[in-house]
Design a protein around this nucleic acid. Structure first.
Lengths: 267, 267
DNA sequence: CAGTGGTCTAGACCACGAG
DNA sequence: TCGTGGTCTAGACCACTGG
């Protein structure tokens, strides 16, 4: 194939590919080929064509499938790897990222012990307190882009480190996607909760936003965390998204920070 | 130049380039060409060959200078741009990143208003309370990799949003690098503090780590922030680094979070 | 050894910005 | 119109992994 500066993708011959917007659009919305390839790979991920932990086809195979050069596929995969959706392993292949078998557990948890060099000083103890199906109030519905009153699954739990209850959190999940989630299943599962979501419900959390405030412990939470009422706690509100920016979880956590801290990197 | 799979860089003919480690090293410590180019560009940045805001030479020029292909230079620049050390602008060139004239001020400040869609609802009011040269205690010295007792500059200030004092912070800087920093200079300067550090002291903050806890307001801080003692506040401890991971600032901030929150993105 | 991702090159053309 | 970065290709070779 000669370099000819293609503007649309080959597989769908002319139209149908991104870059061809509605008629009369002010900007033609030019989209680079590798972005179109990226979108196609994303579709395959979203459709479950390749499961978390599985290898995706090799770069050469994908190049042949999409009728582009390997370099173009490479750039698409590079971006997906940079977004932590794929993981490259030289000599082995490219794999769908997963919350299970992550090199270290809890990819999204930013709480670190103050002194201990590693979190391996004791794996977290988890106690699921409740798992109920309830109707979404206005706030939860808005966050999850549901109608108020729709069914959501509400979970509450406590995480302890070295026997000290450190995190109390409640979370809400769309009822339709998480039909059949029970307290028993949650309690029995050993790995990270997001790994269970992947295997049991096909929901992969890909990105999240957190809003952090300092609050005083109130009665219920204070009891769960075994601290006096009024103790300052970190309030961490998380909205987690699947592919394509669809919100799939609202989570409200209260963190004790007497022995731990929330760590963040700025650049 | 033919593809010949070079292992070392051309400009320094054979040795001297990364990739040639101590004799008998178990692994030859192979380093890709573009990493070596990246290191060279980094050196030029560190040496001040190109100032913040200035354009660096074009890719073609750099390729000629280092005797490599444009694609290799491109990959080196790509990584530096991903680390926010350089900024690419199509049609114009590649520029050294700066804390001044950043598209939005305060690149490292993660505090956002709860409701206001944008921070443009009032630019922060800054009041510098003090700027003294003191001797580093053990903790400050350790963080800044100094000897205890060495001179550091200690600054304290309050940031207010819409007239409400919201951030009280103290910060420590190495005395040698910041010789001549005065309260007057700080108070008079209009832009972000890190922009002043760039222009006046040639120190460019490139990366930072923050540790966040929830604490209760004590007398002094409570007074500065006009809240009752015991009010929960966010404690944000920041260590900021220049090039090559050299720590140049320790900062301890207390944030009111009744109208604002600390925002973070996880992926 | 074969297959995978990783590096490097050379050359073509495109989109953008400024004169 | 020119120079900049941005995209795309084709082909070579290197490094790592596993059978």
């Amino acid at each position: 194939m000669k370099p000819d500066g293609p503007t649309t993708l080959h597989a769908p011959p002319t139209a149908g590919a991104p870059g061809v917007a509605a008629a009369g659009a002010p900007t033609p919305a030019f989209s680079p080929l590798y972005q179109q390839i990226k979108a196609l790979i994303l579709q395959s991920l979203q459709a479950g064509e390749w499961k978390p932990g599985d290898p995706i086809p090799s770069e050469v195979e994908l190049a042949a499938r999409y009728r582009v050069s390997q370099g173009t596929v490479r750039k698409a995969i590079d971006e997906l790897a940079a977004e932590n959706l794929l993981v490259r392993r030289q000599g082995k292949g490219t794999f769908v990222a997963t919350h299970a078998e992550q090199h270290i557990q809890y990819r999204f948890l930013r709480l670190h012990p103050d002194s201990g060099t590693l979190d391996d000083i004791g794996p977290a103890t988890r106690e699921v307190l409740a798992c109920r199906r309830v109707r979404a109030n206005a706030e939860v519905a808005a966050a999850l882009q549901l109608q108020p009153g729709e069914t959501v699954v509400q979970v509450s739990r406590v995480l302890s480190f070295q026997g000290i209850p450190t995190i109390y959190e409640e979370l809400w999940l769309p009822g339709t996607a998480f039909r059949g989630l029970t307290l028993e299943a949650l309690s029995a599962y050993a790995g990270p909760m997001y790994a269970l979501f992947e295997t049991q419900f096909g929901v992969r959390m890909v990105r999240a936003e957190e809003r952090i405030k300092a609050v005083a412990a109130t009665g219920a939470a204070a009891q769960r965390l075994q601290v006096p009422a009024g103790t300052p706690l970190l309030s961490v509100e998380r909205l987690a998204y699947t592919y394509n920016g669809v919100p799939m979880e609202l989570r409200r956590g209260l963190y004790r920070t007497d022995r731990h801290h929330y760590r963040n990197e700025l650049s």
